[in-house]
Amino acid sequence: MKCRKALPLMAQGTDSVAETMLRLILIRYGLPIPCVNYQLVLRDGSLVFLDLAYPEAKIDIEYDGRHHRYQWARDAQRTMKIRAEGWEYFQVTSEMLSDDEQMFMVVVLVARCLKERTGKDYLLPQPLTLEQAADQRRAVWHG
Rank of each mutant, 00 (worst) to 15 (best):
Y54N: 08
Y29P: 01
A133V: 11
L97T: 05
M80N: 15
L128A: 07
V36T: 12
D44A: 05
A111R: 03
E19P: 06
G65S: 07
S46V: 04
Q77H: 14
T93G: 06
P34L: 06
L97W: 08
A6W: 09
K2I: 13
P8W: 05
V41R: 14
V36Y: 07
F104P: 01
G30E: 06
N37Q: 14
R137C: 07
D135N: 11
Q71T: 12
I82T: 15
R28C: 13
H142I: 04
A57K: 09
R4L: 12
L128G: 02
L124K: 11
I59H: 05
P8E: 15
G119I: 00
E62M: 01
H142E: 15
A84N: 12
Y122K: 04
N37R: 04
W72I: 13
L7S: 08
R137D: 12
L42P: 02
G65D: 05
Y63E: 00
L130D: 15
L128N: 08
Q39T: 10
E131M: 10
M10Y: 12
I33L: 05
T93A: 13
R69T: 03
H68S: 07
I27E: 04
V17M: 06
E85F: 00
I25D: 08
E116K: 11
L123R: 00
H68K: 02
Y70V: 02
E101R: 13
D75P: 00
S94D: 11
D75M: 02
V107R: 01
M80V: 12
P55V: 12
V48K: 02
G143R: 09
R83F: 00
V108M: 06
V17N: 02
E88P: 05
D121W: 06
M21K: 11
D51F: 15
L42R: 03
R4Q: 10
K120F: 08
T79Q: 12
F90G: 10
M80F: 14
N37F: 07
L52N: 02
L47G: 01
K115Q: 14
A111L: 02
C35F: 10
E131W: 14
H142A: 13
A84M: 08
V36D: 12
L52P: 03
Q136P: 14
L123M: 07
E95R: 13
C113D: 08
M80H: 14
G86Y: 05
A133N: 07
M105I: 10
I59E: 09
K58V: 15
S98T: 02
Y29G: 00
M1W: 08
G86R: 04
V110A: 04
Y29L: 00
F90M: 04
D135T: 03
E85H: 00
R4M: 07
W141E: 10
H142D: 09
V36H: 14
A84G: 08
P125R: 15
I59L: 07
I61V: 12
D15Y: 00
Y38C: 01
G143S: 15
E88Y: 10
A139S: 14
L40A: 14
E88Q: 13
